[in-house]
Design a protein around this nucleic acid. Structure first.
Ligand SMILES: [Mn+2]
Ligand SMILES: [Mn+2]
Ligand SMILES: [Zn+2]
Ligand SMILES: [Zn+2]
Lengths: 145, 145
DNA sequence: CACCTAAATGATAATTATTTTCAATTACAA
DNA sequence: TTGTAATTGAAAATAATTATCATTTAGGTG
């Protein structure tokens, strides 16, 4: 699975960030969720634990986590904008249901060959890649009958 | 190269859309540009040809072109949001410079094998995929010396 | 060539997501 | 316990995109 909130807290601490109750609450939500959540989703889920938390605080923590590569961003989902959240330690990509939005992680993408060829042909020094598959999950296929 | 404005106009006409001077001006810009432009970019470039055009009109035309698969969208470029524009007829993907934003098209991505496997393993019926490489273009590498 | 009408336009306001500002609070090192 | 820099959250600012709606117009019809 992903990281425990303890581990995430230790990352923050190691880099000199303070461990506030707000941050603890957000990390607890993130580490115990199996889903990819939007900032607004997180905001709601944190309410019981820390009512009155500011949405900004969530944005700020997400930014920090992103710096350390602890966040996934979902791009495809046309209409809804920049999506995010929750990780799996390893490099991975997403398979997204265009109907219900369900996201499935997958870890193997062998793109090194393609990357090298592009690098050779274009002179680019490739840093990363973004790969997403979009389709219909099983249950949405049934509904579409 | 891409489509001529004549060709694009004929697509619109075939589907019952009216050929207004605004649309002609926008299509002229799109078909004669080698770059991937944002709606705001297009807005500026259309000014000489049709001053006073509304930005909305551009959004609306882009939407129509998207329906017919005549538009590229750029996702990666973290900070700047949903990017778009200008195509190459064939299915293709993008190589994006993280420093200056230059976008290079490339047409071969053999992902059918991976797609099939994911489909088998997850039950998804895959519709499309999104693939982008991000790195430093040659000239930005030099500057980074 | 008029004339008619549905489609298109653009000014304006509304939405939505994210960021900035800033005064008040607080974590935590000393 | 104390001092201080980091953090927080209310509120306003940015920004991108979309909705409303009165006015204009492309293009088919007679
Ligand atoms: Mn993920
Ligand atoms: Mn392209
Ligand atoms: Zn689904
Ligand atoms: Zn560059």
């Amino acid at each position: 699975m992903g990281f425990t909130d303890k581990k995430l807290l230790s990352v923050l601490k190691k880099h000199g960030y303070k461990l506030t109750p707000q941050r603890r609450a957000v990390l607890k939500v993130l580490s115990s969720s199996q889903e990819h959540l939007t900032p607004a989703d997180i905001f709601e889920k944190v309410q019981p634990e820390y009512p009155g938390i500011g949405l900004v605080t969530i944005y700020r923590l997400l930014q920090i986590l992103t710096e350390f590569g602890l966040i996934c961003e979902i791009h495809a989902n046309d209409n809804s904008r920049r999506y995010l959240i929750r990780r799996q330690p390893e490099h991975h990509h997403h398979l997204i249901c265009s109907s219900c939005g369900t996201v499935v992680d997958f870890t193997d993408c062998d793109l090194s060959g393609l990357g090298k060829r592009l690098s050779r042909e274009t002179g680019f020094e490739i840093e990363t890649h973004l790969l997403e598959f979009v389709g219909l999950c099983r249950s949405c296929q049934k509904e579409a009958t």
